[in-house]
Design a protein around this nucleic acid. Structure first.
Lengths: 330, 330
DNA sequence: GTGAAAGCGCTAACAA
DNA sequence: TTGTTAGCGCTTTCAC
C-alpha cells in the first residue's frame, strides 16, 4: 500500500510537504499542492490512520454507544449525531451495548484504546465504566439517561412530565383504573416514567397502587407478559401507560389475543412515536420524543467538550409531545 | 495515560515481556505474567490502539456498512455480525451509508485508512468504491445485494423466488389485477423482486403491464405516492406486492386514507417481517427474510477471507418464508 | 524465558 | 516556503 514517502518521491518533494499539502496547511505553494494531490491520486494513496492517530494522539472519531440498535429511538439519535459530526469532519462509529453493562464496558475500553476524540452513550443501569473516560480526560456526553455516579453533560427528555401529561390525558378521558408498564428498576428513564404517572394520579386525587404497575425489560415479550398479568386481575386496569414502542407491540398483542379493543375497553398511551402507530386500529396515542434533536444537541455538546474539557457539566432537557389518537379515546 | 513502559517499570521487567504477557504468548513465566497483570491493573493500563495497529499493520475490527440504520432488516443483520465477530475477538463498527454512494465511499475510505481487518457492506446502486478494497487486498463481503462489477463473497436472499411465491399466493387467493411496488432501478434486490413478480404472472398466464408497477426509493413516502397513483387509475389493482416493510407503512397509510380495506378490497403481501405486522387489521402477510442469519453467515465468510484472501468467491443464497396472514385473504 | 533495539507511517518542531 | 529529523507506543525479531 502506498505510503507518504511514495507520494513524496513521485511529487519530488519531502514527506513533510506532502503531509502539509494533503492536510490543507496554508503554508504550501499552490503549485506544489497540485503536484502532490496528483501524485496521491495516481497512487491511490490513503493515509495510514493508525500512524496518524498515533502521532496526533487522537482520532477524529466519536464513538456512539447505544443500548439497543433495534430501537428506532436510538437509531434516530444516531442520525442526529452523524449529521453534526460529519459537518466538522468527524466520523461516527456506532456500538451496540444491548443493555449489557459488560458490552458497554467493552466498548468503552475500545474507545479508550483507539483514542477516540469523544464518546456519546446511553448508559446502562449499573454503569461505572464511564469513570474510566473521566479519569483519562476523554470527552463524553450521556443521552437519554443521566449517569448514576458521574457529573457530565447530559441530554434528556422530560420523561416525568411526559408520563404525567399522558396520564392526565387518560384521566381526562374518563379512564378510572390506569395502569403503568415501565422499564427495569434503576434505569432512570423507567423510574421517571413511573414517577410522572404517580404525579398525575396524585394531582387527580387517585390512589396509586402497585397492583397496577409492572416493571420489565424494554422489550415486547416482557411487556406482553406484564399486560397479560395486569389484565388477568380481578380488578383489571381500564387504561395503560406504556414506556416505549417495543413494549407497545407486546401490549397490543396481548390485547388482541384477549379480544380487548384499545380505546373503548382499555385506554392506551405509549412513549415514542413509531411509524406504524397510525396504522393499528384504533391509531395509537403516543408521546413523541425529539430523538433526532437529542442526537444533534449531544453531538454539539461533545464537540464543545472536545475543545474544552474544563467547561462545567450541563444538563439539557427536551420536551416530548403528546399526540392524541384513537387508542386513548373511548 | 499509562504506557507499556510504565507497566514494565512497575513490574520490573522489559516492555517486550509486558507485551508478551498481556497478549497471552505462551513463552512467559507464570509468575511474571501475574506480576505484569497486577502492575497493569494498578495503573489502569489500556494499550494504545493506534500504536498497536500501526505495528501490526491491521486492526482487529470489522466495519459493517449498511444502507439504512433505521431499517430493522439491516439492524438484525448487524446483530448477527456482532455475535460472530465478538466470539473471535473482533470488534464491529457500524457505519450508515444511508443509500448514498458518497457516504459509502467515505466510509470505505475510512475503513481502509484505519486498516480494518475486513468490511461487510450492503452496496448502494452505483457503487464502484469497493474496487478500492479489492485493490488493497482488504477482505470484504457483500450482503443483501451483489456487487455490480466485482467478484466477491456475497450473502443473498432469494428475492426473486420470494416475490414469485408471494405473487403466486395472491393469484391462488383469486386476486385478478396484481400490482407491484419495488425499489429503485439498478438496486439488484428491487430488480429481483420485480422479476419474481413477473415470473409468477407468466406462470399463471397473466399479462403483466407496466401500469401496475411502480419503482421508488425504499421509503414510506415513496411507496405512499406510488400506492395513491396505482389506486387512482381507471383500472386499479386489486392486490399489491410491496418490497419492504417501510414501504408497507406508506401503502397502508394510503389505503387507510382512501377507506380501502386490506385483504377484502386489496390483497397485500410485503417483503420483511416487522414486529407490528400482526397488529394491523387485518394482519399483514409477509415474506420473512432470515436477516440475523445473513449477518452470521457473512461474518463467518469474512473471517475465513481474512485468514485466506485467495479463496474463490462464494455466493450464499438463503431462502425467505411466506407467512400468510389476513391481508392476502379475501 | 527474557531483554535490547529496530521500525511501523505519520506529523510537527526546528533548521535552513 | 520547504526539508530534516525525532518520536508517538507498540510488537517482534534477534541475541543472549
Amino acid at each position: 500500500m502506498a505510503r507518504i514517502s511514495d507520494v513524496a518521491a513521485r511529487a519530488g518533494v519531502s514527506t513533510a510537504t506532502v503531509s502539509r499539502a494533503l492536510n490543507g496547511k496554508s503554508t504550501v505553494d499552490r503549485e506544489l499542492v497540485a503536484r502532490v494531490q496528483k501524485a496521491a491520486d495516481e497512487l491511490g494513496y490513503q493515509p495510514n490512520g493508525p500512524a496518524r492517530n498515533l502521532r496526533r494522539q487522537e482520532a477524529a472519531v466519536v464513538a456512539l454507544i447505544i443500548s439497543d440498535v433495534e430501537n428506532p429511538f436510538f437509531t434516530a439519535i444516531a442520525r442526529g449525531v452523524e449529521d453534526v459530526a460529519h459537518e466538522v469532519g468527524y466520523s461516527v462509529v456506532l456500538c451496540n451495548s444491548d443493555e449489557s453493562a459488560e458490552k458497554e464496558n467493552r466498548y468503552i475500553d475500545i474507545a479508550i484504546q483507539e483514542r477516540v476524540a469523544g464518546v456519546i452513550l446511553s448508559p446502562t443501569a449499573t454503569t461505572s465504566s464511564v469513570g474510566k473516560l473521566a479519569d483519562r480526560g476523554t470527552a463524553f456526553v450521556a443521552v437519554d439517561r443521566p449517569l448514576p455516579s458521574q457529573e457530565s453533560d447530559v441530554v434528556l427528555v422530560d420523561t416525568r412530565l411526559a408520563a404525567r401529561q399522558a396520564t392526565a390525558h387518560l384521566v381526562a378521558q374518563g379512564y378510572e383504573r390506569i395502569g403503568c408498564i415501565t422499564g427495569p428498576v434503576g434505569v432512570r428513564t423507567a423510574d421517571d416514567w413511573l414517577a410522572g404517572y404517580r404525579d398525575a394520579l396524585k394531582s387527580a386525587k387517585r390512589r396509586s397502587t402497585t397492583k397496577l404497575v409492572r416493571r420489565t425489560e424494554y422489550k415486547a415479550t416482557g411487556a406482553y407478559r406484564a399486560a397479560v398479568e395486569l389484565l388477568g386481575q380481578v380488578e383489571p386496569p381500564d387504561a395503560l401507560l406504556i414506556a416505549n414502542s417495543a413494549m407497545a407491540v407486546g401490549v397490543l398483542r396481548a390485547l388482541q389475543e384477549h379480544g380487548i379493543r384499545p380505546g373503548r375497553d382499555v385506554g392506551l398511551v405509549a412513549f415514542d412515536d413509531a411509524p406504524w402507530a397510525e396504522l393499528v386500529d384504533p391509531p395509537l396515542s403516543v408521546v413523541a420524543q425529539p430523538a433526532y434533536e437529542i442526537g444533534t444537541v449531544a453531538a454539539r455538546l461533545l464537540l464543545a467538550r472536545i475543545t474544552d474539557n474544563t467547561r462545567p457539566p450541563s444538563t439539557t432537557t427536551l420536551g416530548a409531545r403528546l399526540i392524541e389518537r384513537g387508542s386513548s379515546r373511548r
